[in-house]
């Protein structure tokens, strides 16, 4: 009888955990953010600065860590690597170091097919960097990198499943001017506006949606951008995901719908002939700007 009870317990334990058996055994993230571009070779400020870009990386990493350690305790969360400002150089970004991390995040200025490093005029083009190795997902928080009708997305791919970015201008912003107004009896007291809004919540909510709430990577991203760029500030914007699609181990794989809990733990579609085609999805919110 005891043996039977023991076997039943083992069986029920196995059934309970079978649902979670496809989740990643480990997860690591590396971030590159340029909040301060410093001065150009002529000693002049050459790009606008915004320290929120660095805050956004912190928000993403923190949310990843909180959600994974809480809801996927069986997933080992690797020590994150964060590069900021002067450490974000072209040579560093294009090196193979990022291949050792599952999720790569960049925030800084950008344009069609390129992102902007530190210092003056250092840029990384789509033909300079191919995401692969252990990198399965990338998020590029920059303007226009995947602009519809102009960008060439495919050179970025060497095994990465999908890259999140923007077709339009993107924004890094928080409530800046706080005002107090007179209120109360005879207007002798002061009231303050209550909302706390920041686009760094995009990164925070993306990780929560994807990890904890088990949304597809695209739904997780669009939901977060909609709430904290469009709804909060009214920014017209076009978040976009780009990918190669095809068959992995005989099963059709469309990377935009990849979920964390059942994500593929290897590079995909590295070489010609291994995939069916290239694809993208985007959402148009409000009136996006492109100049």
């Amino acid at each position: 009888m005891h043996k039977l009870t023991f076997l039943l317990l083992i069986l029920s334990f196995a059934i309970v955990n079978a649902k979670d058996s496809n989740y990643p055994s480990k997860f690591s993230v590396i971030t590159y953010t340029v909040g301060n571009y410093g001065l150009n070779s002529m000693g002049e400020p050459w790009r606008s600065n915004n320290s929120l870009r660095n805050d956004a990386a912190d928000s993403l990493v923190s949310s990843f860590e909180n959600n994974i350690t809480t809801y996927y305790p069986g997933t080992r969360f690797g020590t994150p690597k964060k590069y900021k400002d002067a450490a974000v150089t072209r040579s560093r970004f294009t090196s193979n170091e990022s291949n050792n991390y599952n999720f790569v995040y960049y925030s800084g200025h950008g344009n069609v097919n390129r992102i902007t490093m530190y210092p003056d005029q250092e840029r990384v083009y789509n033909t300079d960097k191919r995401f692969g190795g252990k990198t399965y997902w990338v998020m590029i928080k920059s303007c226009l990198v995947f602009r519809n009708g102009e960008a060439d997305q495919d050179p970025w791919f060497n095994g990465v499943h999908s890259i999140l970015g923007y077709s339009s201008l993107s924004y890094t912003h928080a409530d800046q001017v706080q005002i107090k107004v007179r209120c109360g009896i005879n207007g002798l007291a002061y009231c303050t506006r209550t909302q706390t809004r920041s686009t760094v919540f995009v990164e925070r909510d993306f990780a929560t949606n994807w990890i904890k709430e088990k949304q597809t990577i695209l739904d997780a991203y669009i939901n977060a951008v909609y709430k904290w760029s469009f709804e909060a500030f009214g920014f017209g914007i076009e978040p976009k995901i780009v990918y190669r699609y095809g068959y992995v181990d005989g099963k059709f794989f469309d990377p935009w719908e990849e979920k964390f809990e059942s994500s593929i733990q290897k590079p995909v579609f590295r070489n010609a002939g291994e995939y069916t085609g290239i694809g993208s999805r985007w959402c148009t919110m409000g009136t996006p700007e492109y100049e």
Binding site: Y245, G277, W282, C283
Partner: peptide
């Protein structure tokens, strides 16, 4: 207050509407 659309494009085909977000 707003209606947004989600599009998909495969290869060089024309984009098609695949969803919508309404606020």
């Amino acid at each position: 207050t707003s209606v947004g659309y989600e599009y998909e494009q495969r290869d060089s085909n024309k984009p098609r509407v695949v969803g919508s977000m309404v606020m």
